[in-house]
Design a binder for these strands. Structure first.
Lengths: 226, 226, 226, 226
DNA sequence: TATGAATGAGGCTTCATTCAT
DNA sequence: CATGAATGAAGCCTCATTCAT
């Protein structure tokens, strides 16, 4: 299983191997159910070495979260074209987001499902990353409003709420996509759609879903129950 | 502790007490970290009685999920006005959803955070409930399209994607609202807004966010990257 | 080994069995080297039961110390004749002390060797017991001085030092006696004397050693280096 | 950390550094709780080097005991004036003993507290040292008896018991003194006196306590319970 | 002379689960 | 209907010790 049994590996490499194994295991089993034994075996090392390098299950999880969060933020940031129009930037970011979560489903699972479920010490790290992204999106919405010459129509608070909803929808779509994609053994895919959307499809769906609506909002057209 | 020590209680009542305790405990600690000891104590009974009535931790969790899922579906279903217009129906459903998740945050936490995080046996039950809701929403979108006389503009697949995004956004908002509402000690609420939105506010935000965009879509106005 | 396998024993009894096993094991191996496994086996129960009743190794050790300290103080206290002369009281106390430590060598070993060696939480309990005894002895010395009509000759501080030395000598003799008495396998007994002194012998030795000297001190005869 | 990292140090020096670190660590933590890691770090070397030079934890501890025991015996021996009167010799020896234990509290702690607590292999080495000292003291008592012209009054066995008690009292005083001297944070010092006695004070206390009594004994005056 | 890399073994603790009453 | 007594299995973590350089 784990890597071919190669002895005497430099620390940095071993640490990466261990964290890879940890991401996988935490994603598959959840924080509590994942055992250090399993992680060590998957990494192809003995348990004491994991402790020597990463100190404890908690610190290991924390390190994993930080690494995956940084990778995600980097991917999204790198995907946007800096000087494009706001809608273009948002589309780029979403595409980057969906592409990254599709390529690293286990990292995304750890961030989205596990970290938020297991108490403050971890949730805070994820919340910080999420807040960064929400701020970025809110900035784009605000910029778009200005570009459209209707800054006054949207209160800051409203912009924040919309950004939150957008990010939430994106997260939800990403998880849904990954659930569909799981190998054929999963019974979950059976319910609902089957084919996994590409990153561009997902981004397009979301842009259509939201951006168009934002356009109306910016022109003061609001939906009201009555 | 838990309930006042009253002996000789009929089975149905005892079972409800146990499941209430279980919901609370699972929501607070997560599936793995919740101990049968804690659940039994919180329910005010001895552990063997829990096993006598609910057989095992797994079955107990399963029963909890089914109960909470049914309650949520019932609440949402009951909230819609059967013969109203599609947008009105959607708004009603969303309002009912946000109201129920706000009144039963622990049930919602178990459904949304715990059940999906802990392997197939449980996730399937939640996925089924979610699929039911998604179908309902998709039906509304389709109906709205028909009402607007533009059925042909939206492919079924597109409708399903939009329904998914809408449900995802709603779930995200619901969780966010509950996180805000947690007692002041939570550091998570600090990031982003502070005041918890009412159910109607949340539903309105989402309708504005999505419905308006849907309107455009139905008229064939699509957003494209180029 | 451990007691004949008797199931379903009331808690109080089981707790005593466990503590007996613990005293034995701690005395034999020392606090750190004693394993909960060994204690449980010696007590004839499973390890979880030990934890259920006594919570942790630390608490178990603490409980053992308290029990043994109380037993020793009780034994010494019970041995003195309340209204006798001071020297008689001291002799009685010493006899009781030597008799108790001889009958409970493992308890004494835990108090004298283990508890003082393993950090404050435990050492404090023993120090408290020891202080109680030292105060008692100091009181007797003071009383004797008064009886002899020479209260002024001995400063309080001097009395305390003497009491300390006397208690220390008694402890040392008790340990020495127990070391001698250890079964034939011990190589320690070979060095020095062989026959174990009786409690009365030991008390007599100490009275002769110290009391007679105190007599001189009380009359102002002091030893000086020059 | 420990010493400044100086490479290529001759073996003898390195060994001393290691044993110094070991004494300190064993005194602070106890034999079992002391880890080879901590010792190596405190010595400023890598763990394999410790094993290369000292083979195992057990041998290291043994070496430490031998070194400290030899140092103590040497100090006591060197302190006595060879041709002085017996009482003078005893006083000198006690003074030397208290001075040495005060200057090397960690070595004394290892000898007195740790070595005797951890099984035969180590206890024997300490017992041997102790026996040597006891014989020396017994010799002095015998000599004193002869000097006083009353050799017949004291049986050999009685002399041995008295020597034991005297040594025990001295040990007890030494430990008590070191306990007092520990930094102000120790709660143990609070019980009993506060100021640490000098070596000469301690020796004087003991001489007064014991020697005077011995004088009486030598003249046939015995204390009897009745 | 000296060390970074690595592990087998074992200890403390907890938990889901079952008897016997 | 209800429980006090009890345990097998497993998890986290640490340690003394060695290998290859």
């Amino acid at each position: 299983m784990g890597a071919a049994k190669s002895k005497r590996v430099p620390r940095a490499v071993r640490e990466r191997q261990m964290m890879d194994a940890a991401v996988r295991t935490f994603a598959r089993r959840g924080y509590r159910a994942a055992s250090m034994d399993e992680i060590a075996e998957l990494a192809g090392v003995s348990k004491p070495l994991v402790y020597l390098y990463l100190n404890s299950k908690e610190e290991l999880f924390s390190a994993v979260i930080r690494r995956e969060a940084a990778a995600l933020v980097t991917a999204v940031t790198a995907a946007v074209e800096k000087d494009a129009a706001a809608d273009r930037q948002l589309w780029c970011g979403l595409t980057g987001f969906f592409a990254h979560t599709a390529e690293h489903p286990e990292g995304w699972a750890v961030l989205h499902q596990q970290a938020r479920t297991h108490g403050e010490p971890f949730a805070i790290e994820v919340a910080a990353m999420r807040a960064e992204i929400v701020r970025f999106v809110a900035g784009l919405i605000g910029a778009a409003a200005k570009e459209a010459g209707c800054a006054g129509e949207l209160a800051d608070r409203e912009v924040a709420g919309l950004a939150h909803a957008l990010v939430g929808a994106a997260e939800s779509l990403a998880e849904w996509a990954n659930t569909c994609a799981a190998d054929g053994t999963s019974t979950l895919g059976v319910i609902g759609e089957r084919e996994r959307p590409t990153a561009k499809d997902a981004a397009g769906t979301l842009m259509n879903f939201a951006w168009a609506g934002l356009g109306r909002l910016m022109h003061g057209e609001r939906w009201t129950p009555a």
